[in-house]
Nucleic acid binder design. Structure first.
Lengths: 350, 350
DNA sequence: CTGAAAGCGCTAACAA
DNA sequence: TTGTTAGCGCTTTCAG
């Protein structure tokens, strides 16, 4: 199929290019019959707008991408933001612009910022949802207004969001389980430290780990699942108690990024290197624990890449008409002591 | 700094836009003094060409990327090619076109194809070098003609190539060593199976592994390094003999993708699951060996991503003026049985 | 050697 | 409701 432009469509439909433009853009000042005819002809000839020409005439931002992510926890969401922004910058010649409306913390201020964003009429909104309940109706509203919503890192199950980009939680849990089983002797007992089983993300990883560990480790058992609610002190206390209570414990899997209190509890009891510890994600403060041998491996969920992929999907959809996949799962990385320096998170300047 | 265009430069330099165009493009029909003046003004005002406008007027391909990779071994290079092509396709609106000149096999026909490519005058050539010696002068010639050369998967050390995109071989070797050490009891003995120590890529991984394994595994030793020269039969024979000779052997690291003969040798001696096997890369034929427990883990060098990154770098450089990094190393992935299905290589349709 | 002008495909403003 | 036209920044052609 030959590439076809507005002038050609105009000729085929026996109308002016102005009319074609109106039909194509769904503007109101046009006869419905004409519109149908023009649209049909465009369709039949596989019309794709010439973005170069459009960008040229519009001059300003052609594609606006709204970005609504929390500031806290920095080590994670800074990465996501960086990924989105860096990727979007690459499309500047195509007229892509990011409108950034950060909110304080997961669940705090996100609905307000999301609504602000809505008013700027972007074509896409990329959001890290913290409070799915309250966000769902807003997302639905956006989609109705023909604004595509891409969720990053976490999903909003009840909503009509176009897409979700996140780590493959199942794979993360499975991989953690398989690694752990190889690190331990058979019939070993382990425990899981998680945030809250109310969180979809955490629950999935716990479930995946619990399911696979006994399969991989002959007679291996998951003794307990401890919920630290991502609170420093609570986690420390509970893990400390756990380690005293369960003397047979050989390994711990931390399914949330909040692993520092766990490391400290292990250290306080002098168990560094004795308890096999597999964690989640990666940030600077973890490095000493890798070096001491407290953490054996960490399943890295690649927040930067998540951001990058979100931006790619957004631009690809708007600019090239690619359909948005309803979900995009990233392969988890394994971070270990010997390769820490290859991860962006461990580098001094970002 | 405001964005500035050719008309504005023309005004500032008191010449016509035609003259500015001539100056900017280094065409010959222009007074050297005028050229300098125009160039200076453009420089001072941070002129960046408007690609949308350029793409519009040129119509045809604006950016031509030459692609010169072997057909064999399919499972690897098909991935690389797919990555380049898929990524380049995303820039069609910018007028990016891939000129594909495959050659038979590493070292066979690559110089011819490279020269063919040279004659099409692309802005960038992406090449998987197989015969660095003979390719080096051609690469240098290309760079002199202002054609940027990006090497993928393997480098050409003596050349002036602009960039190399490959797996982080050091990290691959280190990671393999660390994983292996955790899979084994202390004081274990292992061996390395490689292709040829003449190949830069193989040598680096062998070196990295050999260096780190004793550090991670108390009293661990690398008993032998076996070169299979990526030949099926030779590898099988040598590994078979090795396993019979070294009864103390607890683990094997295969630093080349050619792991199937190793698996077969292990199977022939009934050692599946007894010998801890860490391999390199991933393709369909490996799946049964994961399932049987012959292969414990594989360090995946992500050929698809390598291709993708190459194309990105190329387009970013030409379109956005980003400097090409002299090297770009990818973080190796760890493939294990429980997460095989997340890798593209294991999926039925590509 | 340099300038003037046409036109790429599209949008938007104005005219009919 | 529809048609006409200017012009976005650039390349290219033709005339000086």
């Amino acid at each position: 199929m030959k590439k076809i432009g507005i002038p050609e469509i105009a000729r085929l439909a026996n109308v002016s290019i102005g009319t074609v433009d109106r039909a194509l853009h769904g503007r109101s000042e046009i006869n419905e019959g004409t519109r149908q005819r023009v649209l049909r002809i465009a369709q039949e000839n596989g019309y794709r707008p010439n973005l170069a020409a459009r960008a040229l005439v519009v001059g300003g931002p052609l594609i606006k991408v709204g970005l609504c992510i929390p500031r806290e926890v920095h080590y994670y969401f800074d990465e996501v933001r960086e990924g989105v922004v860096a990727e979007a910058r690459r499309y500047q010649p195509l007229g892509v612009q990011v409108i950034y409306r950060p909110f304080e913390r997961l669940g705090v201020g996100e609905t307000e910022k999301f609504q602000e964003l809505l008013r700027t009429h972007p074509q896409v909104i990329v959001v890290c949802p913290g409070d799915p309940q309250r966000l769902a109706p807003l997302i639905n509203k956006a989609e109705l207004q023909n604004i595509r919503v891409i969720c990053v890192s976490s999903d909003v199950p009840g909503s009509t969001r176009s897409s979700v980009v996140c780590a493959n939680q199942m794979a993360s849990g499975h991989l953690a389980a398989e690694l752990m089983s190889k690190f331990l002797a058979p019939r070993a007992a382990v425990a899981i430290i998680t945030g809250s089983s109310a969180t979809e993300d955490h629950r999935k990883k716990v479930q995946a780990f619990s399911e696979k560990f006994p399969q991989f480790s002959p007679c291996g058992r998951v003794l307990e699942v401890v919920e630290g609610h991502d609170d420093k002190d609570e986690t420390f206390q509970k893990v400390y108690a756990l380690l005293q209570r369960q003397s047979a414990l050989a390994g711990l899997y931390v399914s949330t990024a909040n692993c520092l209190p766990v490391c400290r509890a292990i250290g306080a009891l002098g168990l560094d290197g004795k308890i096999r510890l597999v964690t989640t994600d990666l940030f600077k403060e973890m490095i000493p624990y890798f070096e001491k041998g407290t953490i054996l491996a960490s399943i890295h969920q690649r927040p930067y890449t998540q951001g990058q992929v979100s931006a790619r999907l957004a631009v690809d959809h708007i600019a090239n008409g690619r359909p948005l996949p309803s979900s995009y799962y990233l392969t988890p990385h394994v971070a270990m002591r010997s390769i820490l320096q290859v991860f962006r998170e461990t580098r001094p300047i970002k």
